[in-house]
Design a binder for these strands. Structure first.
Lengths: 193, 193, 193, 193
DNA sequence: GATGAATGAGGGTTCATTCAT
DNA sequence: GATGAATGAACCCTCATTCAT
């Protein structure tokens, strides 16, 4: 439907505008009015698509996570190198710059439902990851003396820690190499004794 | 001086009040007025002690870091176990609860001078850490194929990642055990080949 | 005509929906969108039937008045008891609850054309009433030392005063008995010396 | 105290400004911003004095009532003529014009706490009135076959009915004469048989 | 005729900050 | 040094109304 399509586009334009302004100005200074203007719609229109600025952030925090890991399921062979590759590709794809990353973090932290969403996202990701981790434990790729859940949690910490420290730093080195290196250490840490 | 002492106390009371309210309500909802009231001073008085709410956050972010590592300098023997112990003791001491941690993160992220301060703090910490790391590399406790700076950076990532993921989770498990475990993996990751 | 009928029904459905929502939520909170939804039409459709929310209120304020008095015209005999009976029956019929009454008052008061309509309605009612009043004055049922217009005006005051005070009260006693009693006093007040 | 005095003045200025704008433009069009401007204060200052526009209306509805009746208590002699005189003087004093009266009605009707306040005011007024009414019943000035509470209620109806119908009319005749006349009828209605 | 996405002025309200007392 | 009234920009959000489909 033409109507339907247009709505989708408007929604996308608003999200893009938000990302653009968060990158330029940060979370708080990027007001709903400014976002709407940048998206080429009226302020009221913003609220036809997102009940609040908070809801927008909830939506946007999806950028932090993907479920690409699902692709690895049911394929045989050693997992660790493929996970490493996966991480590299994921990080490479989403172009989070530092100010945007900070803005997203900030938006998430000051917002109860973002918190809930965050945990849902991590939960869903865990669902995908857990069987793979267990399989890797069986294969002897990963140490068996830690529960898979804990290992997944450690992976998340590694991920967000890298993201956070990177985003807070002044320089402009790319995230991808840093993330890759960090996960190298991580995989070494969780290798069997 | 009596005068001097009183000022110090007032300042301390304001900081305590802020921590208490950030814990209860989060960063934004804890208004300057509420903090002042909780501290038993007038709103205007707050600004005699902190130039802005942002400056207060800058001050408070010191809670994330200590320079206890300095104690380790110039003492011989293996470093890694002592570092682990140090981390455990640091984390155990400062009682950051989850809402407060989130509030501090949020305050830091939306505030340019906090960013600067953050990097200064990490820089200073690096200063202390670097010689120790190099020494440990010499001793063969830590892999030599990564520059000490990078290793320190990795440590920070590990630290903040743990803090962040923990602060975002729903439960109320203590930070200390989690942090210890995480650093166990970390030290394993950075052990020599 | 089928077409004509359907329009009439839709219009009626919208009015019913409005009354229902005004009763539940009051005048302002009952948005055009909510009314349309309750009536089972789209928001835009509302405006095909009423040029504005104000016009709807104009339409609805007819609930405050009827011209049943016309029935009394040209029948002989004492008027006062019949008028009393009439009032009782009128009030009994239209089921104005308190929140709805307040909502209608509110809608009327904030709306220029409602004001005009209100005066038109009262004017028309006067037209009907005046001959009857004069007749009653001739009959010696009502004092002659006040012009009929003034007496009609007094009746309106009595009517709206009762309505208003009743609508503002907390309880849920029925309007009918109150109105009857009030008009008993009123008729006593306008009886001949 | 000078400080205290100034606050009082500011509060008074805001109320005056509100009355002035309600008279000119009606309830809704008189925005808080406009009221503040007219009062010569910033918009934020308005909210230092009134938590909301609704609260202002609550405050203002006091204009509808006074407790001058208290003066009559404990003085001997016939009450009815003194009550009539009292009403005349009350109405004469407060200069409610028609648009303002409509605005106040409108503000009260759309506001839950105004409703409560209204009933409190009438309750307090009843407290004062009831002993007088009973005394008048004893004196044989007022009919004894109706409870005093009901008579007070009837008086309120008479009062607000007159106010409402007068405020809705187009002309500009003074309220005082109308009110006096209406209460003449009312007192006749409640005279002993 | 029906639809509902788009509008956008304006709503009430908040709060960090200033400054006269 | 302490106070708290005043500030006013900016906040998020509402909703009657329009109009292209």
């Amino acid at each position: 439907m033409n109507r339907e399509l247009k709505k989708e586009q408007t929604r996308a334009r608003i999200k893009e505008a938000a990302l653009s302004l968060f990158s330029e100005q940060g979370y708080e200074p990027a007001t709903v009015e400014a976002i709407a203007k940048q998206a080429g719609v009226a302020k009221g229109t913003f609220f036809n698509y997102f009940a609040s600025k908070d809801e927008l952030i909830c939506d946007l925090q999806g950028l932090f996570a993907t479920n690409e890991a699902a692709k690895l399921k049911d394929t045989p062979g050693p997992l660790v190198p493929r996970l490493q590759l996966l991480i590299f590709e994921i990080v490479k794809r989403f172009e989070l710059n530092k100010p945007l990353t900070r803005a997203l973090f900030q938006g998430m932290l000051g917002n109860g439902s973002s918190l809930v969403k965050h945990n849902e996202l991590l939960g869903a990701l865990s669902e995908t990851l857990l069987p793979l981790v267990r399989q890797a434990q069986e294969n002897g790729e990963i140490r068996k003396d830690m529960p898979a859940e804990m290992l997944a949690q450690q992976a998340f910490q590694t991920y967000f820690g890298t993201l956070f420290v990177w985003a807070m730093e002044a320089g402009d080195e790319p995230l991808a190499t840093r993330m890759t290196m960090t996960f190298e250490l991580f995989f070494k840490g969780i290798a069997p004794q």
